[in-house]
Simulated scan of single mutants.
Amino acid sequence: MFKLLGRLAVVDDSGRAINVRAARQQAILAVLVLRPGEVVAIDRLISELWQDVPPATAKASLQTYVYRLRRALSPLAVNGVDLATMGNGYILTVPDRAVDIRAFQAAVAEGSDALTEGEAKLAAKLLREALAMWRGPVVPEIDVELVRDERRRLDELHLTARELCVEAELRLGHHNRVIPELERLVEAHPFRESSWAMLLHALAHRGRRAEALAAYRRMRDILNDELGIEPADELRRQHQDILRGNNALIME
């Protein structure tokens, strides 16, 4: 299993760690795992590893790193893992099931589809399973361009998964259960109006009208002070509904 959600880790079927110690070896592995089944050109890897100032020995050093990486991964060959040279680059073959990022993305997609189809209970289960895979941002110890891009993309997907899970729980009527999670979401992402909308809904639905109105004021002040904008029309309508005591569900 290649674990990239959090610090890089590679383990075999028995759970034994496959040691990939050198920082540049780890970076090469991360890039190849993030581009499975694709030939990653030697020039691209050199650019990733040394950025704008590669040494004259960069190609030879890269070949040494890949040779050592191939040796380290050799016990995983029985699982369909293969690091090969192809043309002027390298290609890593690895089954989807052996990469935590792919499993995470698949579970989020399945959960999102289930929610769209009205299967809130199944959606909540799938999304909780996806979130349980998250150990942290994608390999934070590796600082190369491709990894940084994937880290941003997966951070956004993780946030979306949290919101979708909350939405599924709300549809199941678990309003009290998700309020603490929504409070954490708006604290960490104060400009995320979708999270604020669900927090207002959950509070109002549980009869906590004063808290819902206070949350709206807090959100409006943040948006106004930090971005110079007003809440979206949907949120303003939601605010008016709460003022009038209309606690109709905001998600059908």
Rank of each mutant, 00 (worst) to 15 (best):
A22C: 07
A77V: 01
E183L: 05
G136N: 04
A23Q: 14
M219V: 09
R171G: 08
A202M: 04
E163S: 12
A212G: 07
L164K: 01
H174I: 00
V186M: 05
Q105W: 08
D113S: 12
A60H: 08
A123D: 10
R237M: 09
L199M: 12
E211S: 07
E129D: 12
E156V: 02
M219Q: 10
R162H: 12
C165K: 13
L4A: 15
T85F: 02
V39M: 10
V66E: 01
S112K: 09
L182N: 03
H201V: 15
L49E: 01
L223T: 08
A114W: 14
D149Q: 13
N224E: 13
Q63C: 14
N224A: 15
R70S: 04
V144G: 02
P95C: 12
D13I: 10
V144I: 15
D221E: 07
R244E: 09
E211A: 08
R24Q: 14
D155L: 06
V10W: 00
R7N: 13
L154M: 14
Q240I: 12
L199V: 09
L200D: 06
R128L: 01
A98F: 01
D52H: 09
E181N: 02
A215E: 00
L154A: 08
A232R: 00
V20L: 04
L203E: 05
R206I: 07
T160F: 13
A232V: 01
E211I: 01
V10K: 00
R35G: 07
A132Q: 02
S47K: 09
G87R: 00
V81N: 06
P190H: 02
V33C: 01
V186I: 06
Q25R: 12
R177P: 10
L5H: 09
A202N: 00
W134T: 12
A22T: 11
L29W: 08
L122Y: 04
L159T: 11
L243Y: 07
S14A: 11
V139Y: 09
A58N: 07
G37I: 00
A114T: 06
E234T: 10
M198S: 12
Q25K: 04
V39Q: 08
L223Q: 03
N176S: 14
P75N: 05
E117H: 14
R70H: 04
E141D: 07
T93G: 13
N79H: 12
D96P: 03
N176M: 10
R208V: 00
L62K: 04
M198D: 12
G136Q: 03
G136A: 08
A114Y: 11
A30W: 01
F104T: 02
L249V: 15
L4C: 14
L223Y: 01
N88I: 15
K59F: 03
V81S: 03
Q26F: 01
F104N: 08
A22Y: 13
E181T: 11
E145G: 14
I91V: 10
P36D: 09
Y65G: 03
I250A: 15
